[in-house]
Design a protein around this nucleic acid. Structure first.
Lengths: 221, 221
DNA sequence: ACATTGAATTTCGTATACGAAATTTCATAC
DNA sequence: GTATGAAATTTCGTATACGAAATTCAATGT
């Protein structure tokens, strides 16, 4: 028997919709969030919209202009480097911890996620690709048994998604990513934890190089 | 000339007051947050209180009960281990980065913070001690030049503060902590980055051991 | 034409109002 | 004395209302 779960409040729903719009780039950096307009669009009053914006503000996804309302926070280019510099340490660490704490159905779960990722590559669906990427890494965070990693990275992934959405214009380029994911999972499930962690470090480095290359093509500044 | 900074909104002020009360333990885990009562206490309407609680909820400091309102999230004991496991990797990493990117007035800044920390040890002021601790580590995050570290740890420090408040009943025990802080800063400023990072790793390990010992005294379960 | 200024408009922050859902209270039956 | 259930109360989520501050825009002077 499962416990009763109350439906999400309008504040939560509004927050998720706005955050998603920001992360996918639908709401561009610098764009203003007008409460009235958003409220009308979502068919709610301004009150939940106002609360949702407060949450976005606290989490630095939007900035106060001091004037009318808030704007979507800019994605400054140096953020890429910082994010991947950070992940190059955290991700292998998560793999190392996971090696000692694998759940029973780990193999099945890993195979599911990898299948989803590869399917997204096939269908060239950027949104599904990003989601599978989040899920793969999130799976490892869970396996690490360290909830701080999971919580910390939850926040970071939204920022990562914002960045990725800008450069992942060619989903075909993501094919090797999923070979790497599969190899990492395989090593981990085989008990070769150190190898898996080392490959994860490479994986993040590769991803960063790829993104940097894509960026300099898209916006050569 | 400095730019005009708008005064904090009631939502922000309410959020900070509530978060602080949660982190210091003034609002105990499991305690209910009644909007009417808080609003009356802070002399504002329920509206800013409601928004502030939404932010707390999004950041996992309070939990939905599904029934009336929210309760302060429990601090489960395994969180200690997770936090320090995490910091044992992140803090030395921050030191390593900082070694290459020290600002000009680094020495002066470090001396200021260490002085504040030692003074808090003298006066046995737990609150000031925690604040100095946050500031010392935050200084290193800033020096690391990686804003992701700083942002990530900002959130985590609130949780760390919650945990620490419960065990830091004896401020005298914090004296060696500030010797370690001073030594880390000294090494870093001397260009001995690797040594500083190694000591930082030890520092976190020591801190964890100390807290674990204090915990088993306070609540032997 | 362009700058200036002040009235009209927009839009936000916060207060208040209202309906719904849960809890508490209390009368009643066993 | 305990269980039951309906009425009263509490309290939340959300809508609406209102005042203040910023922006827009048109009228006026140069």
């Amino acid at each position: 028997m499962e416990s009763i779960t109350s439906p999400k409040s309008l504040v939560e729903q509004t927050y998720e919709i706005l955050l998603n719009a920001i992360c996918t780039g639908e709401l561009a950096p610098g764009e203003r969030l007008a409460q009235d307009q958003i409220a009308a669009q979502l068919n709610v009053s301004r009150q939940p919209v106002n609360s949702a914006i407060s949450i976005l503000k606290a989490n630095r996804f939007v900035e106060d202009t001091g004037r009318r309302g808030v704007i979507v926070a800019p994605v400054d280019n140096s953020l890429f480097q910082s994010i991947f510099e950070f992940r190059a340490v955290i991700e292998p660490f998560a793999v190392q911890l996971a090696g000692a704490r694998l759940p029973n159905d780990a193999r099945r779960e890993a195979e599911d996620v990898v299948r989803q990722g590869r399917q997204a590559v096939e269908t060239r669906d950027v949104r599904a690709l990003l989601q599978a990427d989040v899920e793969f890494h999130n799976m490892l965070y869970r396996w690490s048994g360290n909830p701080v990693i999971e919580n910390t990275m939850r926040g970071n992934w939204h920022h990562i998604r914002r960045s990725m959405a800008e450069v992942l214009r060619d989903p075909g380029a993501a094919a090797p990513v999923w070979d790497e994911h599969a190899a990492i999972a395989e090593m981990l499930l085989d008990g070769r934890t150190e190898d898996a962690a080392a490959l994860m470090k490479l994986h993040i480095t590769f991803a960063y190089e790829k993104i940097r290359a894509a960026m300099s093509n898209n916006a050569p500044d």
